[in-house]
Computed example of a mutant assay.
Amino acid sequence: MGSTTQPILQAQDLSIGYKLNSKRLRKVAGPLQLEMHPGQLICLLGPNGAGKSTLIRTLSGLQPMLEGRVVIAGESISRLKPAAMARKLSMVLTDNVRSGNLDVYSLVALGRYPYTGWLGTLSAADKKIIHWAIEATNTEAFIHRKMDQLSDGESQKVMLARALAQDTPLVILDEPTAHLDLPNRVQLLRLLHQLAKQTNKAILISTHELDMALQVGDQVWLLAQGGQLTTGVPEDLVLNGSFEAAFDKAGFNFDKETGTFNIHQGAGQKVNLVGHGAAAFWTRRALQREGYIVATDTAEAVCTIKITEQNNGCLWVSTQEGSYQEHPTIAALLSSLRAAADTPSIHREQTEKDKA
């Protein structure tokens, strides 16, 4: 949501890291200025070792901060007792719960512990919230099954249901998609985006799913090696080069046009691609895999490839040194480019034979 709302979470001059001993500290990042507002889904991104988990643990009070202040719903976490903290913040950690004696409903019901106390007696209001959490996460089909009978995707949804049953204004998830396959990763991130909007909770997730984070995140917190944190709307961070800087590695680069990383480093000839939509996207991918640099500068391009749509699909038309060819598939286009690339060497060999 916008900045007109009161923030649910604020970090002021926050420095995170570790105390090596009584006199030595290892600062990972800081000082940081952070805010989360109701209805926001924020994605924490960064390379391995940048300090994402350290930041998550510090914000949730699991690890002491080196300096600064963290405020949740108007109260400093340093002053909150565990029971009060549990009514303001719920967490979903990477490790799945695999207790053979615990069924799904019982685990979700544990989310009400901050309100029921040691006796654990559930009121009608508690049961209503539990039912809502189960319904919101689509876990009704297996509420009577044991936790060790669930798939990774099912287990992660149950843990989210428990966090929702806890009914806190702030929900933090550390690598919630770590053990999931692609369909379950997509489903979970889409669910989190919907829940933020529908419940007006602030949700923070630490994730490596960069392409999906660009689609679902209202904001991105981008933590780079060395502790530099950049925050903003994901599209702005793409356009201003923040992603290239944070994930700067030899051998691949971030493509602003597609929002993905290219693992193939173009070092060959330039080709000009004319087209749009899915066909252009996948043609670009195939050309980059072949080692071509897909450029918009027609003067330097050795070949121009134009994609035209037809009733039964697409047609790829390549123009190279006055030669005009049509290709029904990307495979046929690549085969033609390979043959053309071999032609100059054949001509050179024939010329050398003629001179001899």
Rank of each mutant, 00 (worst) to 15 (best):
Y324L: 15
A178N: 07
L93H: 14
E257W: 01
T54F: 05
L164H: 10
A29R: 02
K88W: 02
A267D: 10
A86I: 14
K128P: 01
I77M: 03
R289A: 13
D211L: 04
A280E: 12
E209Q: 14
K88H: 04
L62C: 03
T260H: 13
A50Q: 03
G217K: 06
G39N: 05
R26C: 07
N312S: 14
D152H: 06
D152N: 10
K197D: 05
I205C: 08
L189W: 08
G111L: 13
R69P: 00
T94G: 05
N138D: 15
G17R: 06
M159Q: 15
Y113F: 10
I172P: 07
R79M: 01
V233Q: 13
K249L: 14
Q166M: 13
I172K: 09
E235P: 00
A73D: 11
L55M: 09
C43Y: 00
R284K: 15
L173Q: 06
Q350Y: 09
S90D: 11
F142D: 03
I143Y: 01
K27W: 01
L41D: 02
I305Q: 04
D174L: 12
G266S: 13
G100I: 08
S345N: 08
L25K: 06
A246Y: 01
L45N: 03
T304A: 14
E300L: 12
L189E: 07
